[in-house]
Amino acid sequence: MAHGSGGKAMAQLIDELFLQAFSNPWLDKMNDQACFSLPAGRVVMATDSHVISPLFFPGGDIGSLSVHGTVNDVAMSGAVPKYLSAGFILEEGFALSSLKQLVESMAHAAEAAGVAIVTGDTKVVERGKGDGCFITTTGVGVVPEGLNISGDQVAVGDKILVSGTLGDHGVAIMSLREGLSFETTIESDSQSLQDLVAAMVEVVPDISCMRDPTRGGLAATLNEIAQSAGVGMQIYEAQIPVKPQVSAACEFLGLDPLYVANEGKLIAFCPADQAEQLLAVMREHPKGRDAAIIGDVTEDSLKFVQMETTFGGKRMVDWINGEQLPRIC
């Protein structure tokens, strides 16, 4: 990968790479924009910049991650994701073979999620000014009639569900980055959730809210919603799915899986009387096999998220400003 003079040929090469991998009627027109029409309904748009080290990890790479991240953000509104744009910032010297691998992985992920990458852009920066490859994706989707899914819809009495095990992504990345070896390799859970969401909203259109607990994990997401909806939450440690190897790794490292990032899980809130039904739908779907009802939305003037521990005690699952600082006194 070259930058500046002589980079022109390279840029062309890259463009061809993208064209080939993402090929679709909009991109193939080679305009500076994509022009498309959307089915009826409210249009949803989300954008996310992806920066991750290492770029390749067990269970995925930055290419597929950049599709999953944005597709999931769009899907959390209940929308069907349709189109993506992709912006690349590449560091001078980044291996073309690696780029090819990433792009192919993106194309696969997009195809699996039923979205087309319809427009894009690439910039190459000087060596040392980037970390190999950064990818920004923007997604557009359409919300089917009759859905109103949003943080402020969460109400006292709602049940809280998660679609699967927590902490996989964060622990996988950290283990790889630090060269930590555990008995079994922990894989990232990076995946797109639009099909799981579609199945869920079809059966339970009354879902109040969905979120993907990415950075800051379950804890940060629940606190955000508690604040915005003005409610408290009570979750039960015994009900929260965590893979034994993730749990053990967290234990060793001194991490709390509730605060660790996920890239292929969602949290859903729905009225209590529909929770079992929703759970059943989720569990039928391959991406929700380990789904669980983990708690309740409660009335709480202080908007606490609290957890009943497996020992029957209670614990704050509180808000953390930035990095987790030790606080045991």
Binding site: E178, G179, A248, A249, F252, L253, G254
Partner: peptide, 24 residues
Amino acid sequence: YAGVATVKQMLNQHINCPQTSSAG
């Protein structure tokens, strides 16, 4: 303890090993 190998690795590589002047 089960985590002893990881703890050794954490010490060697300075992973989540904050320093402290705590007497406690």
